[in-house]
Nucleic acid binder design. Structure first.
Lengths: 191, 191, 191, 191
DNA sequence: CATGAATGAGGTTTCATTCAT
DNA sequence: AATGAATGAAACCTCATTCAT
């Protein structure tokens, strides 16, 4: 019961929690949320089924955990990004950064696009990702406004949608998709 | 046994099959494929659970039926589209046509994007939609080649992905999404 | 409605009934009674599912039909057999005849042994086959009595059981089972 | 967590597994494999339907469990039997032992003969029982060889088949079947 | 006699979640 | 915190049988 022990327990808990989250991410992403059983997550995390519920209240809560955990990994990127963009160079860096982020954790983003249009978890999804999406759009809108675009909001939305589309295509088609070439064209057209 | 009676029966059967397909489309699109039970489709079609299986061999076969049924509705559009594009005007018409098609049957396209990244039914999905997708890309690629684009294939893929992204955004966000404005900007940038 | 037409109808009916019976025998024998659906019998007989019920009242009635139909094919044999046996030569002929009968319609006898120990249809089975079995035993009992056997009834039962066992083994193992050799030994021991 | 508790749990689990196996044996044997529902097994074992699947992977796996469980009860007999037979006295003991074994667990052997000719589960059946059957035959073959029989293999197969036939008759007819008398005659003829 | 759509009970199996230990 | 047995609802699907045509 000494503070030290408590810390250790906390650490262990975090370690186990992390393990669960990573197992869940892997399975959700590979087999889909609906087709992943709590059982299989338990097995992969080497945690008992019952104990899973000491860490997460239920399957949906676990999904939320997975999404938050995934997002945290990109916190740094998002922080940097949250500054304004003024030059085309900065724009290009932001776009390329976006795809590096996706490439660096395909599993997470595959899950993201897997959930994108899932009515089952739409509320949760919206709750978590809407802020990010709106932040993105706002920054791009400002960028196009500064450039004198005739409809900055629509252009920003178009860009955001194009980024989604390209990411989705890349994640689904894998290396058949000539990602770098497509990015180059995208930057050319949208900068 | 008269031809008339047979025809009537055939019609009735088609009518019921159509009813089932439409119920299934609605439910799949609203609740997702995995979260729609055969039971609920039966109830909505006013058909007994067992009788469903006289029309479709199983749930996945029913999904295939729904997708084919949906696609057939756009046969005309696809046929027109399959000609080559030469002028910017033709390009614009094609793009606007694409979105009219989507707006004319949102349920179907919502289901489309719902299945897009579903591992569960990926094989079926790929089987059905890959031909269309490739045809699209090929036509756009030719268009950009004619225009002297430096990487026509990448540009065509970018366009295809952008169309996906915009459609997805529109279908998910509903009327919050300023579709027409976005389309205008898209045509401006990609024509 | 002329007698001629009626006869033709009767013939057609018999033809179709025969067809159904033979399809049913084949399927029951190959897949088992419980695992054969009325549907599959209908398809194989090229008769509609509904029409099946114009010929037989239900599945069990159809089974009864199959069994009676099969037995009728052996009527001649049974009639001959129903005379008494006096000499060892007659005994041998009877035994060999028994196995020729089995070899001449393996499907039927496979079904027979398939149903032998099926609680599901035991009543029907008993109803149909008990008379034959008892007749068999009675004749053999008389045979052994004439020979001065110390317990003719038990010997007759032993013989009957041995015949069952050999038939069963042969039908299950197929040509791996050296039927003729086994019959020779059986005749040697039991004559 | 003490060893004692674990053992108790293990014991309880075994007890429940045993309970399920025995319920299943009873029902399979009384109503046939195909006509016994998992539901009914669950009810009889006082276990929930779902929990059944914590003990056995499915219905066929449960059947396999039942067969193995039944066979294990005769392990001792089989072990003794696996020695060679030299004298007629040993032969007689073996035969009588065989029937004692059958009488001591009629349910199991009824199931055995129930499955004997069931196409549905033939593979499983063959997998489990073929070794025993072949061992039997081999030992009898050696016995007859030693006795100078003119076709020891056929005689051994005949004996094996006769044993099957007698067992089957006894199990189906119950006490109407004068088992002991028949056995006496069998020993007389085959020793 | 003939058709096959229709029914609805019942079958096996899966699964998120709970709870006694 | 940890276990995994236990639950029970719900899923997909099959099938003998009926019945309007």
């Amino acid at each position: 019961m000494s503070p030290r022990t408590e810390k250790q327990i906390e650490k262990l808990k975090q370690k186990k929690e992390k393990l669960i989250l990573e197992s869940a991410l892997l399975l959700f992403s590979e087999k889909g949320y609906g087709n992943t059983s709590m059982q299989s997550i338990a097995i992969r995390s080497k945690v008992s089924k019952g104990n899973l519920y000491n860490y997460f209240e239920g399957k949906e809560d676990l999904l939320e955990g997975v999404l938050m955990y995934g997002l945290n990994q990109f916190a740094e990127y998002f922080n940097e990004f949250s500054t304004e963009l003024f030059t085309e160079k900065e724009f290009e860096i932001a776009i390329r950064g976006n795809f590096e982020m996706i490439q660096s954790n395909k599993k997470f983003w595959k899950l993201y696009y897997n959930l994108f249009a899932q009515p089952e978890v739409q509320d949760l999804f919206t709750k978590i990702f809407t802020p990010f999406f709106e932040q993105y759009i706002a920054i791009f809108e400002m960028y196009y406004k500064n450039k004198g675009d005739n409809d900055p909001k629509a252009t920003a939305l178009l860009l955001g949608s194009a980024l989604d589309g390209v990411s989705l295509g890349y994640l689904l088609m894998g290396d058949t998709y000539p990602l770098n070439n497509v990015i180059n064209q995208l930057i050319e057209k949208f900068k």
